Simulated scan of single mutants.
Amino acid sequence: MRRSLRITFASFSAALGLIAGAAIAQEPPPAPDRPLPDAAQEARAQDLFDGIRCVVCQHEAISDSPAGIAADMRQLVREQVAAGRTDQQIEQDLVRRYGDFVLFQPPVRAATWLLWFGPIALMGAVAAALLLMVRRRRVEAAPLSPDEEARLAVIVAEAGVRPDPDAKPSDH
């Protein structure tokens, strides 16, 4: 009885430790955003947020992402807007830090051709493969010669197979 209590207590302690460890390992919530005091600058920053991809979520703009790094990126953009940098300079700085992937519309250049033209090339390859499959004709068997029909009739008769009454003469 005592042994089963010790095992139960040990199991309970281990489970509690795992749960507590997972809770401790979570990322702390980001500090709340502090908008810029100038409404025009804040509006400009908000416009920039919509074109910048969260590097953690990858499918969300930093304006919509709850990730801590998205909050850091929003703060960085706000600081650069307040410092008077242009939109292009801010985007170039983010690309320098995180790569072209950080922009929802990366620039067209040799390094991003696959991003821009890869889906089109893939669809073209699939269309070409389908076209080849459709155009491929089935090879129809040539009709049997009279000698071949006679040999087939002998084989069928020897096998004791009853001929199909609906069959054509070459099917007998």
Score class of each variant (00 low, 15 high):
130 L>C: 09
109 R>S: 04
99 G>C: 01
95 V>Q: 06
107 P>D: 08
123 M>T: 09
107 P>Y: 01
132 L>D: 04
145 S>A: 14
116 W>M: 08
75 Q>R: 14
123 M>H: 07
115 L>Q: 12
142 A>M: 14
134 V>C: 05
142 A>C: 07
109 R>T: 05
131 L>E: 09
88 Q>R: 09
119 P>F: 04
99 G>E: 10
130 L>G: 08
84 G>L: 05
118 G>H: 06
143 P>N: 05
83 A>I: 07
147 D>E: 15
80 Q>Y: 07
151 R>N: 10
109 R>Q: 10
82 A>P: 07
90 I>W: 03
111 A>F: 01
132 L>E: 05
132 L>Q: 07
121 A>F: 11
84 G>E: 03
139 V>I: 15
75 Q>H: 10
82 A>K: 12
87 D>E: 13
116 W>V: 09
130 L>D: 01
147 D>I: 13
134 V>L: 13
90 I>M: 05
111 A>C: 02
98 Y>L: 05
110 A>Y: 09
144 L>C: 03
121 A>K: 05
77 V>T: 10
83 A>W: 06
90 I>A: 02
132 L>S: 05
139 V>G: 11
86 T>P: 02
116 W>L: 07
140 E>K: 14
100 D>M: 03
135 R>Q: 14
115 L>N: 11
120 I>Q: 12
138 R>W: 06
130 L>I: 06
111 A>M: 04
146 P>Y: 08
95 V>R: 07
152 L>P: 02
111 A>Y: 01
124 G>W: 03
105 Q>I: 14
118 G>L: 07
109 R>P: 00
99 G>L: 03
85 R>V: 00
91 E>P: 00
97 R>I: 11
125 A>H: 03
96 R>C: 00
98 Y>P: 03
124 G>A: 13
94 L>S: 04
125 A>R: 06
126 V>C: 07
89 Q>V: 02
140 E>Y: 13
119 P>G: 05
103 L>F: 09
117 F>W: 11
130 L>R: 02
86 T>R: 01
128 A>G: 06
138 R>A: 12
